Amino acid sequence: MTEQRTDKTGAPVSITLDQARAISAYTVSVDEALAGRADFVDPPQTAGERVFFHTEVDEEFGGRGLAGLLIREALADSISRNLTVVPVCPLFASHLKKHGDEYKAEGGQFRRPRPADLALVKETVQNAGDA
């Protein structure tokens, strides 16, 4: 999945699903330079869920709305894949708190994180660091 968008400055950006690394992510690039990512894990014991746990955009690309683009594209892709979103990441949680009704109206599903989700994130990050 790769989507082409424009940021607040009008510059073209690409948002791509990257599942080839130890931690899967939606990435955002500007002029082919990686600008940010929204990390997630798909729980192996619970099919149909995606736990978003960290989102960041490099400082040099700040103020261009890239985090918002990243979140919106990740959520849109989650709808198309019929995935329930679990927002551990504060940016995803905040977005869904403000726009959750709209997201549900578009066919999206989300739920609050549980202790098992937090444990999975911790294990995933630890295993990625060991790799």
Results as ranks from 00 to 15, higher is better:
Val88Ile: 12
Val121Gly: 02
Phe61Glu: 06
Pro87Gln: 04
Gln109Ile: 12
Pro90Arg: 08
Val125Met: 02
Glu123Arg: 11
Val57Tyr: 03
Val13Thr: 12
Glu59Gly: 06
Ala47Asp: 11
Asp7Arg: 12
Pro115Gln: 13
Arg5Ser: 08
Thr9Cys: 11
Leu96Arg: 00
Val121Glu: 01
Gly36Gln: 07
Gly108Lys: 05
His99Gly: 03
Lys97Tyr: 09
Pro113Ile: 10
Val51Lys: 01
Lys97Asp: 13
Phe92Pro: 01
Ala25Gln: 00
Ser78Ile: 10
Leu91Ile: 01
Ser94Ala: 13
Val28Ser: 07
Lys98Pro: 04
Met1Pro: 05
Ile15Thr: 05
Glu3Gln: 14
Glu56Cys: 03
Gly129Ile: 09
Ala22Ile: 07
Asp39Ser: 07
Glu56Ile: 05
Leu17Pro: 10
Ala33Asp: 13
Val57Thr: 13
Leu70Ser: 02
Val28Lys: 07
Pro12Arg: 15
Ala76Arg: 09
Leu118Ile: 14
Ala47Cys: 06
Val86Gln: 05
Val85Asp: 01
Phe53Val: 00
Phe110Ala: 05
Ala25Met: 02
Lys97Pro: 02
Glu102Leu: 07
Cys89His: 01
Ala116Ile: 10
Thr46Asp: 12
Gln19Glu: 15
Gly48Met: 04
Ala76Tyr: 04
Ser94Thr: 11
Glu59Asp: 13
Pro44Arg: 15
His95Ile: 00
Gly65Ser: 05
Arg37Ser: 03
Lys122Thr: 12
Arg21Asn: 15
Ala105Gly: 03
Gly65Cys: 05
Leu34Val: 09
Gly36Trp: 02
Ile71Pro: 02
Lys104Cys: 08
Glu3Pro: 04
Thr124Pro: 07
Arg114Gln: 14
Pro44Tyr: 11
Phe52Ser: 03
Glu56Gln: 10
Met1Asp: 07
Gly129Lys: 12
Ser78Ala: 15
Val86Ala: 06
His99Ala: 08
Ala22Pro: 08
Glu73Asn: 09
Ala116Asp: 14
Val88Lys: 01
Pro43Leu: 02
Asn127Cys: 12
Asp42Val: 15
Ala25Val: 00
Pro12Thr: 15
Thr6Gln: 12
